[in-house]
């Protein structure tokens, strides 16, 4: 893991990559209303390594999903590189997910019918990147996460750690502005988890903006900003 492939286009410009202003998310289950996120304000700059901590059910995943445009906030405003995503159409949001966000999930979320190479290349297909470039980029990224020999393996032929590496390569493939990692080591043993964290560390060093959700206090040491959530509110920053 000597050199992680990054080519962050506007590397050293200090600007707000992400801003949450008074964002709330309320789930309605019949009569019951669950406030998963309660008027939170967060501001994240380019190159930040942000840790989001808090007990289970405190709203961490909900916050990540809102930032990742997978869900829409009930109230408040979210700015992604100064664009208010609350006002965008589903099709525009899909474009943003593909181009500006790199999601790394706890459960890897790879497509089972595709091999590692195809999984990594897939996000570029939705951005109309020509096939030869897709293959080239995907191969380079897989090589850099140490999976050169496993490119043509399908997810069920890979270990948990290897799958998460594929997922990381996939998250990087469209050169996103933010990497969102929701408990990326939650399904891995300690040793493998450490290796994944090393990769994230390396990405941060090279200038990537990362938001990491974790339970592990050790991991928060890596971060330059830590937000603690409790019952949907930020209780410590």
């Amino acid at each position: 893991m000597n050199h992680i492939y990054i080519e962050n286009s506007s590397a050293n410009r200090a600007m707000e990559v992400l801003q949450l202003k008074n964002v709330s998310k309320v789930y309605t289950l019949g009569e019951e209303r669950v406030t998963a996120i309660d008027k939170i304000n967060i501001s994240i700059k380019k190159g930040d390594f942000v840790a989001l901590v808090g007990p289970s059910g405190s709203g961490k995943s909900t916050a990540m999903n809102l930032v990742g445009c997978l869900d829409i906030a009930t109230t408040g405003e979210i700015y992604l590189s100064e664009v208010n995503i609350q006002k965008l159409t589903e099709s525009d949001l899909a474009q943003i997910r593909g181009k500006k966000i790199g999601f790394i999930f706890q459960t890897f979320n790879l497509i089972p019918s595709l091999d590692a190479l195809e999984n990594v290349a897939l996000p570029m297909m939705f951005q109309n990147v020509p096939r030869d470039i897709r293959i080239k980029r995907a191969k380079a990224l897989l090589e850099q996460v140490g999976l050169k020999e496993r490119m043509y393996h399908r997810p069920n032929q890979l270990s948990g750690g290897q799958r998460q590496r594929v997922a990381i390569a996939r998250a990087l493939v469209n050169d996103p502005e933010i990497i969102l990692a929701d408990e990326p080591t939650g399904n891995l043993d300690t040793k493998t988890g450490d290796e994944i964290m090393d990769i994230l560390k390396e990405l941060h060093k090279k200038g990537r903006t990362i938001i990491l959700v974790t339970h592990n206090p050790d991991l928060t040491k890596l971060a330059n900003k830590v937000f603690t959530l409790k019952d949907g509110k930020i209780v410590g920053a």
């Binding site: 990742g68 099709s91 899909a94 474009q95 997910r97 593909g98 790879l110 996000p123 939705f126």
Partner: peptide
């Protein structure tokens, strides 16, 4: 359904 969710998460539009 989950696969559809994954594809959307990595940038697939409804029409895709």
């Amino acid at each position: 359904t989950k696969e559809i969710g994954i594809m959307k998460a990595i940038g697939a539009r409804n029409k895709d």
